[in-house]
């Protein structure tokens, strides 16, 4: 870099500190377990915080007071554990008088938005894709001054708990629009989107016996879409693809599979690795793409 960009260290505001000063934040950023512990998704959390800092939103996080929403327990059938977690979190959130929650995890989003109200936790819950779309619409984020995605190929993988579960299809696409990239839709997209294979607590167990892993099927579809490989797309119905690992004469470095969910991130990245394509196709979350296009990484 020719010139040194000024940078500053971020001290992430903790809800307990704000409460001690008698302040209430405009939004509570719900980090989620993957956002807090998963090494890959921690980078998404950090990217999102950079955006929050950049636009100057009044926010806070719960830090160590946050606990699993109970989503994986509930999907696996452990309703008792789910409600224990839910009531504990609701007590924390209500204790701080939280009104608005933003999260980068569609599973946390779905659980807090749809399943907490009946247990006494009513908040305005926003997924970070919708939040980023709002920032773009308000002109607070322009995706200028950083990495350029112009002309690069990006395909968006719909998360089940964002898409079908909550009908959010347009916000993530609107966010990607500002990158001025070459956006490609997979054949199975939006309401017909194919799961990455991690939902319903599959993230924590081996898949049942079958002929293929779901994330490999989905990664093949994403790669074939980015490559424009119609033959592979036509034959994708659970059949292992025999396409060459790298299409001959391929010069498509820098293609991106965009995701908006920590579990989709893991599954798609593993799928790309399985097809030995990690050298030319990367998996990024929306927040990471925006943060680097805006030049916020330091």
């Amino acid at each position: 870099m020719a010139e040194l960009t000024a940078k500053r260290q971020v001290s992430v505001p903790m809800m307990a500190d704000l409460a001690a000063r008698g302040e209430t934040p405009e939004i509570l950023f719900w980090v989620g377990c993957a956002g807090a512990f998963d090494d890959r998704y921690k980078r998404v959390t950090r990217a999102f915080v950079r955006i929050l800092e950049h636009v100057g939103v009044n926010y806070a996080v719960l830090g160590m007071e946050e606990s699993c929403t109970g989503d994986p327990a509930k999907r696996a059938g452990n309703e008792f554990l789910f409600q224990m977690q839910a009531m504990q979190n609701i007590t924390t959130l209500n204790g701080y008088g939280i009104k608005k929650v933003v999260t980068a995890c569609p599973h946390c989003f779905n659980t807090i938005k749809n399943e907490y109200p009946a247990l006494g936790g009513e908040y305005e819950v926003i997924h970070h894709s919708t939040f980023l779309q709002q920032l773009i619409n308000e002109g607070k984020v322009k995706a200028e001054g950083g990495e350029s995605f112009k002309g690069r190929r990006i395909t968006f993988h719909d998360s089940c708990y964002l898409g079908r579960a909550n009908n959010i299809y347009e916000a993530p696409r609107a966010v990607l629009e500002v990158l001025d990239a070459d956006l490609l839709e997979m054949k199975r997209c939006k309401t017909n989107g194919l799961c990455c294979g991690a939902g319903g607590a599959q993230m924590w167990k081996e898949p049942e016996p079958g002929k293929k892993d779901i994330n490999v099927e989905r990664a093949e579809e994403a790669l074939a879409t980015l490559d424009g490989d119609a033959d592979v797309l036509l034959n994708l119905q659970g059949v292992e693809s025999t396409a060459p690992v790298l299409p001959a004469g391929s010069n498509r470095g820098g293609s991106v599979i965009a995701v908006a969910c920590p579990f989709c991130m893991t599954m798609m990245a593993d799928g790309v690795k399985n097809k030995e394509r990690e050298s030319d196709v990367q998996v990024f979350d929306l927040a990471e793409l925006i943060a680097s296009a805006e030049g916020l990484n330091a």
């Binding site: 940078k7 260290q9 992430v12 980090v31 950079r50 800092e53 996080v61 030049g295």
Partner: peptide
């Protein structure tokens, strides 16, 4: 995750 976090 919040350790050593910088923003440009």
């Amino acid at each position: 995750w919040a350790d050593d976090l910088f923003v440009a």
